[in-house]
Amino acid sequence: MTDELLVVRAQLGERAALAELVERWRLPVWTYVRRMLDAERADDVSQEVWLAVVRSLPRLREPGRFAPWLFTIARRSVTDRLRAEYARAAEQAHDPGPDVAVAEDAIEAMTDRAELVAVLSGLPVLEREVLVLFYLEELSVAECAQICQVPAGTVKSRLNRARRLLREHMEGYPR
């Protein structure tokens, strides 16, 4: 059964179809979120993603484009979480407490905490994101552009940069 059929059935109000959508896309969504955040936040943010999906599903006008729509929501949830982390870290930076040194860049700090994804975590967030969407979630450049809300050319340049950074990182990585 295609995603489009499942979405249409779910939009009609069939709970079984909605459950199957969750079953089918739970792991890809979690994988994307996990590559952007650490494990604890990945579970939490995945739940937020699915809640937002369920609430917005009746308004999805193009059921055939479910995947990019889903990852747009996932990206928004991840961005919101990173932004909240960044704001919190910025506040701490102004506070002359013991955490000043580690709070210089919350996003980088979060990247560092994502130690399980050893290679990917070395990349900046924007480059890591397009790598995850393009290679791991197997979305097209156009779909990545739609999800990241940037032109396709920007996605290509981020991919090029990500590949270069990845190569440099791999070369310097102990074997």
């Binding site: 779910a10 939009q11 009609l12 109000g13 609430r55 917005s56 599903l57 009746p58």
Partner: peptide, 10 residues
Amino acid sequence: RRVPLFASDR
């Protein structure tokens, strides 16, 4: 905003 109304619900 909070409660999804599917087609049959609408």
